[in-house]
Amino acid sequence: MIGRRWWAPWLWLAPAITLLSVFLIYPVVDTLRRSLLNADSTRFVGFDNYKFIIDNPVPLLSNTHSAILNNVLWLVLFTSFAVGVGLGIALLASRVRYEAVAKSAIFIPMAVSFVAASVIWRFMYVFDPHIGTINAFITHFGGHSTAWIQNTNAPQTWLTSLGPTTLPDPIQINNLALIIVGVWVWTGFAVVVLSAGLRAISSEMLQAARVDGANEWQIFRRIIIPVLSPTIAVVATTLVIQALKLFDLVWVMTGGKFKTDVIATLFFREAFLIQDFGVGSALAIVLLLAVVPVMVVSIRRFQFQEETR
């Protein structure tokens, strides 16, 4: 019996292990190695590249602090907006007649590539109100045209009389403008998954809560949210990973200029444009370290759900 031999399982696993080694393990190990070497990987420099990321010595060329902060900003705002808006739309869609049509309309951006979406939105944000849809709106209602994706301190146009003249570094209007595009693309995903989750909630249960004396808000807070929380967690985890590894949207819309860099764009620029593989690899490792805990958490939860089924 072939199944009894000790090497039999390994035989079956071999193709998968080979593929994983070539395309996953080798690159990771090599990146780790290069992150400890100099720009052209010829000399060992210890943790100098990581020190570069922490010290941020050339903020005008490659601002590592801003990139990391932007990633955090994306992680928080992009995830919470997409989940929040997605949940709102899913709830509303479940109450309208044309649910399928409404949801398809919202899902369409998912089918558009990030690159195409970015190009579309670059036009939307154009300064010239004859081209840029958003500025056309604003000027139509008597406002001033704003260079949404360049202007790093655009809020001042409204805030000067109300608040501080300069906002903390990462809170720039152009970052928000980019996040909105991300939300536009990913909300459809959140809506579809959350709708499926909502559907699994029996209407009799909601009616039972109503007869028990719950108003709409209490039903939402105490029944829908808790029952939906595993689904929300799945959506949020997916979005967090998207936010962490974000690259194409920023690259197409700003190329990382105007302090919109995120870790992935900065790593690309360092490694392939500036050709400092040391710093580039170090940034890649930082990104990897950020993604790993999220992966671990979501795999754990997956196993937990499998067990409790």
């Binding site: 029996s202 009799e204 249960m205 009616q207 039972a208 809560a209 109503r210 007869v211 028990d212 004396g213 719950a214 108003n215 029944i223 029952v227």
Partner: peptide
């Protein structure tokens, strides 16, 4: 919610 009735459903509809 304001009728002060209690109902037992066929599916029980427990939370």
């Amino acid at each position: 919610k304001d009728r002060d009735l209690a109902m037992v459903f066929q599916s029980y509809a427990l939370y």
